[in-house]
Design a protein around this nucleic acid. Structure first.
Lengths: 135, 135
DNA sequence: AATCGACTTGATAATCGTTATCAACAAGCG
DNA sequence: CGCTTGTTGATAACGATTATCAAGTCGATT
């Protein structure tokens, strides 16, 4: 991987497409979206760019319960978690200072150091809940 | 998948092997362990049995940060989370009533229903921390 | 103990997401 | 403009998981 980043329309495309998404998307989905929009961008580039964005802190990434890697644009560089609709993918960023503290405390109590944590909440958003109630 | 379960030595093997593990293991790893111990059990069967155990609530499963599915024997049928050493895999089950409540509250505040959550803490256990400090 | 039908098994192929390869290409500097 | 070096993308390779399906086993029934 290169140390110096160049600006290419491909990178811009991925960044833009990711910004337009309201929630987490997989690399595959984003690639399909771009292709549908007429972009000839390659799948490998989408994967690479998303990984770069995540590494640079410009995107959040998480694993869906099915094991796919999902990405989402994120402007708040600070640490935070997500509330995700498992139906439509809508995502709400949630600050969780209590949880941060809890995680550190629990780790320390058990002699663990260098603790990181994965905290995400999946559910049905208001709209999808309503839709489900009708069905 | 069958509705009625039969008892086979294969299922017993998997259950036993999982019990002997101190932390989360992948299906591949467990299969290798069983094979090394002389068992001629098939990989597909290990996957199937682990999935069954998880579905029946006799095992916990989670995704490693690298995307593998990991399993662990669990006797406390109640809901709980894990503190996992990312070096040696040692796992501590942690009750987290505060976090449960927090997750439900946050979901409700945002109009989400049917909230589930993924909460796991990865770190270095005491032993591995010490080892790392020496290196 | 022998029979039989339904459930299980397991070698292997197939699938799926992701990463590596590498020649062609383009960004940006001089 | 021309060169150096990072970037791209079609495709192959990869690793984990699941599907396939013939052969084998369980266990209830004689």
């Amino acid at each position: 991987m290169a140390v110096v980043r160049r600006n290419t329309w491909q990178r811009e495309s991925v960044r833009e497409a990711l910004d337009l998404e309201s929630g987490f998307v997989s690399a595959q989905t984003l690639h399909a979206t771009l292709r549908d929009a007429g972009s000839p961008i390659g799948l490998a580039t989408v994967y690479r760019t998303l990984a770069d964005l995540a590494a640079a802190g410009d995107a959040d990434s998480l694993q869906s319960p099915e094991g796919e890697s999902l990405y989402r644009a994120c402007n708040s560089a600070s640490h935070h978690h997500h509330l995700i609709c498992r139906k439509c993918g809508k995502t709400v960023e949630i600050a969780a200072d209590d949880v941060e503290a809890w995680a550190q405390r629990v780790a320390a109590e058990n002699g663990f150091t260098d603790a990181h944590h994965i905290v995400d909440v999946f559910g049905l958003c208001g709209a999808c809940s309503a839709a489900a109630a009708l069905g």
